Computed example of a mutant assay.
Amino acid sequence: MAEPLACPCGTGKPYAACCGAIHDGRRPAATAVALMRSRYAAFALGLSEYLWRTWHPSTRPATVDLDDDLVWTGLVIEDSTGGQPWDDAGTLRFTASWTSGRRSGTLRETSRFAFLDGAWVYVDGSIHH
C-alpha cells in the first residue's frame, strides 16, 4: 500500500510526521489521544499488526482481522479524560465514519487506555448506538 500524503487521523499533518512516525516506531504515542489517532489511522491503512501490538495484553484478541471492504472516512474525538504523559490511564469518546460499498455509517465508542511498560495501549471500549 502506498503511504498517504495526509494522515488519515484528521490532524491535517503529513502522514510521515504524524501517525507514520508512531506506526514505524520513530516515536511513541505521547498521550492516549495520540494513540487513539494512530490506531484509527492503522485501521484506515490496514495495519493489523500495529493494532495488535497496541492492545492491552489482558484484552487483546489472538489476531486482529480487518474488513477489507470497510473504508474509514473520518475521526472526531469528542471528549477525553486523563491520558496525559503523567497519567497511567485515560478515557476518550470518539465517532469514526465509514463506508462499505453503498452503505455508510458511524461507530461511536468510549475507549479506555492504560500506560503500560512505558507505552499507551488500548484496553477496551463500549460502543454507543
Rank of each mutant, 00 (worst) to 15 (best):
C7Y: 00
Y122T: 03
H129K: 11
D68E: 14
I77W: 03
R37K: 11
R53E: 15
R37M: 03
V64N: 07
T91Q: 14
A119Y: 03
E78P: 02
E78T: 02
Y50S: 05
Y40H: 02
F115D: 00
G46Q: 11
A114T: 00
T63D: 10
A96E: 02
R112I: 04
R102V: 04
S80C: 14
T54K: 10
T54C: 07
T63Q: 15
A16T: 14
G101E: 06
L35H: 09
V33A: 14
R27F: 04
A62S: 15
H128K: 10
Y40L: 00
I22W: 05
T99Y: 05
D65N: 10
E49Y: 08
M1T: 11
S100R: 15
D65H: 13
H129Q: 14
L66G: 11
S97T: 09
L92W: 06
S58A: 15
T59R: 05
M1E: 12
T106E: 10
A114V: 00
T110P: 01
W86H: 15
A114H: 00
H23L: 12
Y122S: 04
I127T: 13
Y40G: 00
P85Y: 10
I77Q: 05
A30G: 09
L47F: 09
C19P: 00
F113Y: 11
R102G: 08
M36D: 03
Y40W: 03
S58R: 14
A21S: 12
T31W: 06
E49W: 11
A62V: 13
P85F: 12
T110Y: 04
Y15G: 05
F113P: 04
A21R: 11
D65Y: 03
F43K: 04
A89E: 04
R60V: 12
T95I: 05
L75R: 09
S80D: 10
R27E: 05
S100W: 06
D65G: 13
T106C: 08
H129M: 07
S104F: 08
V121T: 07
R37H: 05
A96W: 01
A96H: 03
D67V: 12
G125E: 04
A114F: 00
G125I: 02
D69Q: 14
G125V: 02
A44E: 01
G12N: 01
P85R: 11
P57D: 12
I127V: 15
R37L: 03
L51R: 15
P14Y: 04
P4E: 02
F113C: 05
